[in-house]
Design a protein around this nucleic acid. Structure first.
Lengths: 243, 243, 243, 243
DNA sequence: GATGAATGAGTGTTCATTCAT
DNA sequence: TATGAATGAACACTCATTCAT
């Protein structure tokens, strides 16, 4: 999405997001400091990082079956043999990459500082944050989609699955409770349903932008369309929460 | 989803859906009449049908890259050589299968008879129809996801892309207009945004049920969860539309 | 062995053996008639034959781990893909080759016609036959050795293992019984011990000819040494059987 | 063999052998004294020992082609790089291991003290010693087999090949001569033929125990079978030597 | 129209060996 | 002396596609 917007010479959503105080560049986007002398001591760790970055990039664009281990090694600038030494095999690589994108999202979520905000503002922030995370991290959506194509097999086998639980649901529950206590949100809202709606309203738009654009013959990746969508989502959900 | 619910000995959503007047069995689910004498005259056409059914099944469970042409030929009970004669190659097969799942959804949508209903009832029906279509047709979601992974390349190249335009958007616009004229729906609603919300609220829940179930340690494929979700979606959207 | 003797310009043991009435050329040695029109109808069977011949040759000279599937396909004059289509994988190929060398020996053994001979002559024939089979079929020894290196795992899993039972033990038992009845052989002889001795006295000489030749600095593959060994074996065993 | 007998709760042949005065534990079986302070001075030598022990173990169970240099380094508890520094490469490692098993057997043979025994007793001792060495040292048989698979190439290139010449042939010749002088052994016996028979009668039984057990559906690794075989070998050979 | 056999270019994975420190 | 990281060639096996009949 970012790419195609950049192609159109417009400000990217990524840049827009940076205008919000809580938005940081994700670890995955950080430029690789291959010869950083400060990291010379723990090269192995750095190699593993590079491998995982490359894996996320390849898997996200090609899917598991379409991804090529050679391509990942090439992207990582590392010998294929080392890749196997570090990670094991393609499946383990997938799982590590999957855990990585989950973890990246969790880290972003942890930077949200909602306590200082009134419930309605906090809720809006949560909603916008999520939407923007999706627009900015197509690799997250792509990997989740492919993992679901595999029926979640890999995730189930992950020993770290418990750690991947999104703090967002907790945050959402807290804000919701605060708002309900303040009388600004309606009662009888299931936080999980709300969470799935918060995510889903943006997920489909982002994940399926290509087919939607083709079928409707519109450019859903333009900044205008993205911002329009964000506002619509806020309207729908805030309307739903109104007492 | 259907399978796991059946395993749990509960009524399937498919059955539930049949209780609604507009629900029919989809083309994809129609039993294959391999030796139907009535079709003996146009065997080629029947063969092509079998190939496409098999392709949808394989592609939907394995994705494009993971699908095996051999497996499709096997599923179709046809010689691999004929498959190439009929369709061309793997990419053409994908496109044909993709057009097929779109077309199948269109056909279902055409059976909806909304004019006879009041706007609010018609809108609810539309919403429920969509959700249930997703729960019952994982192949539709799976193929759309994978097509988006490929950035919609194949769909763009389709000569029939115009035909695939969902009647749902038109239906939705009509019902929306009727409701607005009657004063039961709010003004200033972008039909496309509404459409994307109608779809998205169910899409994410269905498409990502495996990762969601794993992360939240819940069985989102149970009948209860499915029905709960459906009602939530109706609540959110009908609430949004209220003037 | 044959090769190195041929190199020395001497008559091969193989030729010597043909002077005995019961000796035939083994199936494995039969020249391949790749384009035999009479076999055009069942090419697949012929291909499988060629694959197995090639597998025996490769495995016997390189062992299981040292053998290369590519080399086998090359020897068989067949595409590697077909090799997998016909046989499955390297392990299945090994097992098929192993069964083949066993079966080849059985077929030779079945051509022995011992009833017409007096017990002592029949016994000598058995002993000589065995020895010569070993000298002529290094592939048999080599594959047995490597299968034992693998602790007989493959053989145990063979569904045809019962069929591979050597008729030789039965023949030996019969001749032994006849001789004992005639009073020309001693009593109290365990046929299996006798069988193992019959085989073992030649096996070690043949199988280990290279290390023996190196350690003793003699050419144990010369015709003279081979014939001397054969006579020694006959002497040892016939002496043992004398009442 | 020893293992499976031990499993059956019977005395092991190894233990039986220890009851004979000339039987010692082989060098290969000697426990590794990794941190022996007495050897601290010549650690390199100790490292080389460990490497060779590990190489014998790996090569004997996997063959040359099947053996993994990594596995040998791991077994030896040494860095792979050092392994190359000490020995050179895989082929040199094989040769060193091969020389080691030969040397180990020679050392055992040198402990035999036959002069004190009458010819017939000495001969029996030689025969039993050999058989038991084979049952107790499967690594010896395995490496010899694999070296022969390689057509003795490595052994031929060994500079120490002359040193590996078995003292057994000399011992055998001496005992044979003594017995012939005493009139208790027949004349006209080729010592080398006798030697090959002494070895071969046990070699085949031990080396091929797995295929023999599978084909005959018997447990040739039981103590009873082993002892029976030993007695049979003695009977055959002593019978042959009788004047 | 229909089929079984064939193929070359990959595809994940492993190996013996060497480099840099 | 010792080590962890690195490498390129090879390995078993698979794939989409086409040939011959």
């Amino acid at each position: 999405m970012v790419t195609s917007m950049a192609r159109r010479g417009l400000v990217t959503v990524a840049r827009l997001l940076q205008s919000l105080p809580m938005m940081r560049k994700s670890a995955a986007a950080r430029p690789l400091t291959q010869n950083d002398p400060a990291q010379a001591e723990n090269r192995p760790a750095a190699s593993r990082e590079r491998i995982l970055d490359a894996a996320v990039a390849e898997f996200a664009t090609q899917g598991f079956a379409g991804a090529r281990v050679d391509a990942i090694a090439l992207r990582a600038g590392i010998n294929k043999r080392m890749l196997y030494a570090y990670v094991g095999n393609k499946k383990a690589l997938w799982l590590a990459a999957l855990e990585r994108v989950y973890e990246a999202k969790r880290q972003e979520e942890r930077t949200l500082n909602l306590q200082r905000l009134a419930p309605q503002e906090a809720m809006q922030l949560l909603i916008r944050f999520n939407f923007r995370y999706h627009t900015d991290h197509p690799e997250f959506l792509a990997m989740l989609n492919d993992e679901n194509l595999q029926r979640g097999m890999n995730l189930q086998e992950s020993k770290r699955v418990a750690e991947l639980y999104s703090p967002l649901l907790t945050l959402l529950s807290e804000v919701l409770a605060r708002g309900q206590a303040d009388g600004v949100f309606r009662q009888n809202v299931d936080p999980m349903q709300l969470y799935i709606s918060v995510v889903g309203l943006g997920y489909f738009f982002c994940s399926n932008q290509f087919t939607l654009s083709a079928i409707f013959d519109r450019h859903l990746d333009s900044v205008e369309e993205v911002l329009t969508r964000e506002q619509h989502i806020v309207d729908v959900l805030m309307g739903y929460l109104r007492p």
